[in-house]
Simulated scan of single mutants.
Amino acid sequence: MTGAGSRGEGIGNGRAIAVLMAQAGARVVAADRDASALDATLAMIAETGVPGLGVVADVGDPAGCAQIVNGALERFGQLDVLVNNVGIVGPAGTAEDVDPEAWDDAFRINVKSVMLMARHAVPALRRSSAAAIVNVSSIVAQRGGHPSLCYPATKSAVLGMTTAMASHYGPAGIRVNSVMPGNVFTPMVTTRGMSEEMRLQRRENNLLKIEGTGWDVGYATLFLASQAARWITGVILPVDGGLTSSVPLPTPPVSRG
């Protein structure tokens, strides 16, 4: 899986996915371009007692993607699941003022990596009897209000690739689904600044009034990757406390009688 580290201490989506899959008995190949972030995840995988493998690689580079897949095959002899989790926020700005070069780099990491990882992984996945791909997107792909143009654009592209790949590879027995996290509290969020007031507001915005975490995203990913979801493909699964399903209730009229 890609993006297995966390941007700071704590549990990000990638770290949670890697640990939960190891706890379920999967031999996880955890990849990240940040060696120190990856080491912390590998330490948690080691605690499960299931062998894992860490690969420091840039998934925006074809060579990095080949390195990850080849490492899995050399170490474990097979590949059953690909989780495309890597992602960056990318440049701020609207269409009028976003940095075009930073835009291209964000698409290289968030979008091109999904294609490149699939390009290298699918030949091995075809040989599996339980093959699955899970792409991690975001609710900003389907819900307006994000202050920047780039991040929602990349995450929308991931959804489009998910449904297209489900059609392409379904006949080969490869299931392709996407998890769409909402406002989860992760190290990536904290490093950008998050006051207690902002956390409360994010929590109150969802229907369950519960703050989501990387573990919530991890459990959803684990389900879609597992044989419990053997007849599920082409699905976009929001993990957001119902935020994408919510419609603000009208304010009751004030009686002035």
Rank of each mutant, 00 (worst) to 15 (best):
G90W: 07
G77P: 03
V114R: 07
K112D: 15
F76W: 02
R75I: 08
S128E: 12
V98W: 03
M117A: 07
M115E: 11
Q78G: 02
V114M: 10
W103N: 09
V86N: 06
S138C: 08
A130H: 09
R108I: 04
A130R: 12
R108P: 06
S113P: 02
M117I: 13
L82M: 12
E96T: 14
S138V: 10
R108S: 10
P100G: 01
A106Q: 03
A131T: 09
V89A: 15
K112F: 09
Q78M: 05
H120S: 13
M117P: 03
A106F: 00
A130Y: 03
A92C: 01
A132P: 07
L82A: 06
G77I: 07
P100D: 03
N135M: 14
A95S: 14
L82K: 00
G90T: 07
V98T: 06
S128L: 05
P91Q: 12
G77A: 05
R108W: 02
L125Q: 04
V81D: 10
M115G: 03
D99S: 09
P100S: 08
V136H: 05
F107W: 03
A95C: 14
R75P: 06
I139T: 15
S128A: 07
D80H: 02
G87F: 02
V136D: 04
E96L: 15
I88C: 06
N85A: 06
A132E: 12
V86I: 10
N84M: 07
V81L: 08
A92R: 15
V86F: 08
A131W: 04
A130Q: 14
M117T: 13
L82C: 03
A132C: 08
N84S: 06
N110K: 01
K112I: 10
V111K: 01
A124G: 08
P123W: 04
A121P: 04
T94D: 11
T94N: 10
R119P: 00
A124R: 03
V114S: 06
I109C: 01
D105W: 01
W103A: 13
N110I: 02
V111I: 06
I88R: 11
G90H: 11
N85C: 07
E101L: 12
K112E: 14
L82F: 02
M117C: 15
A95P: 12
V111L: 03
D80F: 00
G93F: 09
S129D: 15
P123F: 03
W103V: 14
D80N: 09
S138T: 07
G87T: 06
A130V: 07
F76E: 08
G77K: 09
A92I: 01
I139F: 13
A124L: 04
N85W: 03
S138H: 11
V111F: 00
A132Q: 13
A118Q: 09
I88E: 09
A124F: 04
K112Q: 15
I139W: 11
V122M: 08
V134E: 14
D105T: 07
V136R: 02
R75C: 05
N135A: 12
T94P: 01
E101M: 02
A121L: 08
V136K: 01
R126F: 14
A102E: 12
I109P: 00
F107A: 08
R119T: 09
S137Y: 15
R127C: 13
P100Y: 00
V81S: 10
M115D: 12
V81Q: 07
